[in-house]
């Protein structure tokens, strides 16, 4: 890819799972250009791809399948960022709707255990512990990000790039090769979130 980062542009996979107004607003504020991905050809137009997602993981996977983009997404070699349910789609399976997902990151998405004495959903700002990863460049150590979710991705040291604790420790962010996922909402996470979006747009 080109050294000139000003050519970078993010394609947002448009598959009808949740609202993306806040995401595009955050990209606008950061001066990051973006467009919508509706077809396989659209995937080629952008240097980076975001898979957004709010709501039910099983239903989101069905909608993604209806776009016919699944195989093309799995074959991508450019940086991809899944946000919230978009991150969960990268895993192999979710307990939500007992659904088989993209299986890019071989992990499972599980329901929080009420027996741990926690409220569900996990809603609000929580400290994220990340290691040295380009996604978190210039983010303050233990910065807080905004989470809203009832299902989580099991912690696995191979793919985990940031963890968070709520009831149990789980993955706030994962990476496998060019595929990244964040459980929190960077578009709603104040300056830390905006920095992360900017960082993603610079990853080569």
């Amino acid at each position: 890819m080109n050294e000139n980062t000003t050519n970078n542009s993010i394609g947002i996979v448009s598959y009808g799972a949740g609202n993306i107004f806040s995401l595009t607003a955050a990209l606008d504020r950061q001066g990051i250009s973006y467009g919508m991905v509706n077809t396989e050809a659209d995937l080629e137009k952008y240097s980076h791809i975001i898979i957004p997602g709010v709501g039910h993981a099983g239903a989101a996977m069905q909608k993604l399948q209806q776009t016919g983009l699944v195989d093309a997404i799995k074959a991508l070699t450019k940086p991809v960022l899944g946000i919230c349910v978009g991150m969960q789609l990268l895993t192999s399976h979710s307990e939500e709707g007992n659904a088989d997902l993209l299986d890019i990151v071989p992990l499972k998405t599980k329901l929080f255990d009420r027996a741990l004495g926690i409220k569900i959903p996990h809603m609000g700002w929580n400290n994220v512990n990340f290691a040295n990863n380009p996604l978190f460049t210039n983010v303050k150590p233990h910065a807080q990000f905004y989470f809203v979710h009832s299902y989580f991705i099991e912690y696995n040291p191979i793919f985990d790039i940031a963890s968070v604790t709520y009831g149990n420790k789980f993955s706030a962010a994962v990476q496998k090769n060019n595929f990244f996922g964040v459980q929190f909402h960077p578009e709603k996470s104040g300056e830390a979130g905006e920095q992360l979006l900017k960082n993603f747009s610079m990853i080569r």
Binding site: A25, R29, E187, K188, S189, G190
Partner: peptide, 11 residues
Amino acid sequence: VKAVARQLNIP
């Protein structure tokens, strides 16, 4: 709501 969402970076 649109105007707020364009500017605000918290929920």
